[in-house]
């Protein structure tokens, strides 16, 4: 059906008088409607979440607003309307594909599997999949978890990662699933699980909000590194070029340092918690050489 529509649109474009500017795709949609719709998450702290006034804020949204500014200049629509649409990890890709949102500003891993469905902007964060444990426990490496129970959040990329680690290292861990990060962390806090395996930045967010943040630590080990990026529709070269240019400029100019510091090493809304997550060498490298390589 999609191909059918695309064919019709292409035919209409080719058949009609050639437009002065060949926009097509997302940029044309934005120009025609005078609106850009950003998809945001509700609890992906500090990337994309709701503050105490239920307004979407976050690191990813700040970067997406740079893209919106570039769109305004490019299309010469200074009063471009920005609509914000909440999305979840389950519906973010379908909503992008069916045109409900034009750009997804959340905490989405840029993976090769997803690149078959969507395109990604430049990597704006690199996480390590690691484990949060209690300081009081005897677990110092992921291998120490042999024979223990670990929690993780269902539907995340951590699930197949643990399974392949088990197979490769011959360790045997028992996974239990929380339906969101808060529940998975609760399993660790209640000693039902010896570790919570997840993206390190999300673990840092859970720990910062825990009753006793000093009780927990994140293991220095990494199961895998994953780049985070904004998602846009696949096969839309002009919009992709604009996204790369806008975000790349922020990274090259060093403006990114300020934006990064605002969200990762300073107190953030709603509770004024500081994540204390200074830039890692890998992230610094991603800013120096903007790229959209997936894992």
């Amino acid at each position: 059906m999609r191909r059918f529509i695309t064919t019709i649109i292409t035919a209409a474009l080719l058949g009609g008088p050639v437009a002065a500017q060949d926009l097509g795709g997302t940029l044309k949609k934005i120009k025609d409607t005078g609106t850009i719709t950003l998809g945001h998450r509700e609890s992906s702290i500090p990337f994309s979440y709701l503050d105490d006034k239920q307004q979407p804020i976050g690191y990813a949204l700040d970067l997406c607003m740079k893209i919106v500014d570039a769109v305004k200049t490019e299309l010469k629509i200074p009063n471009l309307k920005v609509t914000l649409q909440p999305v979840t990890s389950s519906n973010r890709i379908p909503l992008l594909q069916n045109g409900t949102i034009d750009l997804e500003c959340g905490s989405t891993t840029n993976s090769v599997a997803r690149q078959e469905q969507v395109s990604f902007g430049p990597t704006y964060f690199v996480i390590n999949v690691s484990a949060a444990v209690k300081k009081s426990s005897s677990v110092n490496t992921i291998a120490d978890l042999d024979g223990k129970t670990v929690s993780t959040t269902s539907g995340t990329t951590s699930v197949p990662l643990i399974k392949s680690y088990e197979k490769a290292k011959g360790v045997d861990v028992k996974e239990i699933y929380g339906k969101d990060h808060a529940e998975s962390f609760l399993l660790l806090a209640d000693d039902r699980a010896a570790a919570f395996i997840m993206d390190d930045i999300l673990l840092a967010g859970q720990i910062a909000n825990a009753r006793n943040p000093a009780d927990y630590r994140i293991l220095p080990e990494s199961l895998r590194q994953e780049p985070y990026s904004m998602m846009l529709r696949k096969g839309d070269a002009p919009f992709k070029a604009l996204v790369d240019r806008a975000v790349g400029a922020v990274m090259k100019s060093g403006e990114i340092e300020k934006i990064y510091a605002k969200w990762f090493t300073a107190p953030i809304a709603p509770k004024g918690v500081n994540l204390n997550f200074p830039m890692t060498p890998v992230i610094r490298d991603a800013f120096k050489n903007p790229n959209d390589k997936g894992v």
Binding site: S90, I93, A113, S154, G155, T156, Y177, G178
Partner: peptide, 23 residues
């Protein structure tokens, strides 16, 4: 029961959707 992580039919369905995008 998916909400407590029991790997019953609905849990597996969601998992399949989220991992393959073939919702």
């Amino acid at each position: 029961a998916y909400s407590i992580g029991l790997t019953e039919l609905f849990f597996r369905t969601r998992e399949m959707g989220e991992m393959t995008f073939r919702y």
